[in-house]
Structures are given as C-alpha cells and as structure tokens.
C-alpha cells in the first residue's frame, strides 16, 4: 500500500476536524474494507484517521423500543449481544454471518454502513428495520441514507456515531452467499411492524433497495406464499460470473420467501 500519515484522534471532534482539514484523508473504523483496498493500491489517502480510539462510539444500548448500536461496535459484539438477541434476533443473526469470525472481531457497523458496499449485509437491516443513522452533525432516515454504489448521504467529514434500530414484530434475514467471497450475492431482510412490512434487498443491485410489491403483498398476508409469484425485474441487477441478473432476480424471491418463513417461526 501507499504510505500515509496516521492519526488516532481521542475525540469525535478531533476526528472530524482532521477529516475536514485534509481533503484526501480517509476515516478508518474496523479497517476490514479500507485495509484490503489500500493493500491493493486502489486508494491513496494522504491521511488515515483511525477511529479506534473513540471508545464512546462502541456499545449497545436499549432505548425504549430501539436497539441503539454505536458506530464502532464490532460485528461479533452485535452477534453475541444478549440485548440484540432478545429485541431483534434477526439483527444478531445477520451480524453473526458477516464475513468470518476474524472479520467479525474487527469490522464495525458504522464502517459497514458508511462504506455501503453493494454486497454488505447491514444496509439491508438498516432499510428493512427503518433504522435511523445518527452522525456527529445530524440524523438520516434509512430510506434517505443509501444513495448508490458506495455512496451515502454522509457529507465529507461527517461521521456516523450510532444506528438506532426500532424493534420489529417479526423479522428475518436470508443471505445467499457468493460461493467465492461469501459476501451477499443476494440478501433479503424482511421486517413486519404492525401492518407495515419492509423488504430490503442487498447484493443483488448496485445499492440496497426495497421491493414495494412484496411489501404490499406481505402487508396483506405475511406468508411466503403471498410473494411466491412476485418476480422482480432483472434489468437493473448486478451480473457477474457467479450470478446473472436473472439468477439474482430469482434468488430475491427465493430468499424473501425463506426470510418470511423464518420470521414466522
């Protein structure tokens, strides 16, 4: 990798100041995406701002009906948190299948969401659970946060501090992993809260998206049969050697049905 200047700020304010003062700086949380990217020399930041020293950003709290997860909370901690397992078990389940155990020991929810890799798992949970993303400067709704391929609503120098997930009545995440990378080739998160159902799909397209037709059908009848004939168009989906767009479109329905079945269990 190219060399860079390394910073380990002790406060969010210092981190933000550093990022704002150096236009080519990059923040690093767990580093599970950034370091491999740097190793491949696909990025050349002048400065790396390591958020690892911001202990106040790590931790899980229950606030009313919400699970609030600090941005620097590791996937392993979400996966094994008794609170998360009790309140939103699907979220713990999702976290327990991100990457591998060693990645889960380092990778963070804030990093994953800020990076918005099209094959990442967390964006599906954020959107399906209608979470709120809190930053040093404000709040973003789930639907407004993910903008496109590796793009989010975060401004330059804006850092995620926490993500707040409202409890759902029923929820489940089903992932079809890429056989090589084990990233989500298709991941579907289904959540039902009252009469409101949200279906969020990751991996299949350039960015997480919702499937309105499935949401409507599931709002009428929260059963896998209700969506078995719903096919999403393949046009805008990803296509690569592991999965054609048509295959991904097909898998969206299969994984959505399985998620509904799992949520009903």
């Amino acid at each position: 990798m190219y060399d860079f200047a390394y910073h380990r700020p002790k406060s969010i304010a210092d981190a933000v100041n550093l990022l704002k003062s150096k236009p080519e700086a990059r923040p690093m949380s767990g580093g599970m995406t950034l370091i491999p990217t740097l190793k491949q020399r696909l990025a050349k930041p002048s400065d790396v701002v390591d958020l690892g020293g911001l202990k106040e950003l790590a931790g899980i709290k229950i606030e009313g009906n919400n699970v609030v997860i600090g941005a620097m909370t590791r996937h392993a901690d979400v996966a094994t948190s008794a609170d998360v397992k009790r309140v939103i078990p699907a979220l713990a389940g999702l976290a327990s299948h991100i990457g591998d155990p060693q990645v889960r020991n380092r990778g963070t929810i804030g990093g994953s969401i800020a990076n918005n890799d099209p094959a990442a798992d967390y964006p599906a949970a954020v959107v399906a659970l209608n979470a709120t993303v809190t930053t040093n400067s404000g709040k973003h709704t789930a639907d407004s946060f993910f903008k496109g391929l590796f793009e989010t609503a975060l401004a330059d120098g804006e850092l995620i501090t926490s993500v707040s997930f409202p409890k759902a009545d029923k929820a489940a995440y089903m992932k079809f992993p890429n056989p090589a990378s084990r990233y989500a080739m298709v991941g579907v998160f289904v959540a039902k809260t009252g009469n409101n159902v949200r279906v969020a799909v990751t991996g299949a397209g350039p960015c997480v998206f919702r499937v309105k037709e499935m949401e409507d059908a599931l709002a009428r009848s929260f059963t896998s049969d209700a969506i078995k004939d719903i096919k999403i168009p393949a046009d805008a989906l990803n296509s690569d050697i592991h999965g054609s767009a048509e295959y991904r479109a097909h898998l969206v329905t299969v994984m959505a049905r399985r998620a509904v079945d799992a949520a009903n269990k």
């Binding site: 090589a180 990378s181 050697i241 592991h242």
Partner: peptide
C-alpha cells in the same frame, strides 16, 4: 475464467476464485 474479449483474469483472487 478469463474475459473472452480482454483476456483479463476474472478470477484473480479468492474473492472470485471459489476455494
């Protein structure tokens, strides 16, 4: 897998070559 047009190795890492 090589791309048939460009000859680029499409499976050039463990991310794409399934071990």
């Amino acid at each position: 897998v090589y791309d048939k047009e460009t000859g680029q190795l499409m499976t050039g890492s463990f991310n794409d070559y399934a071990m």
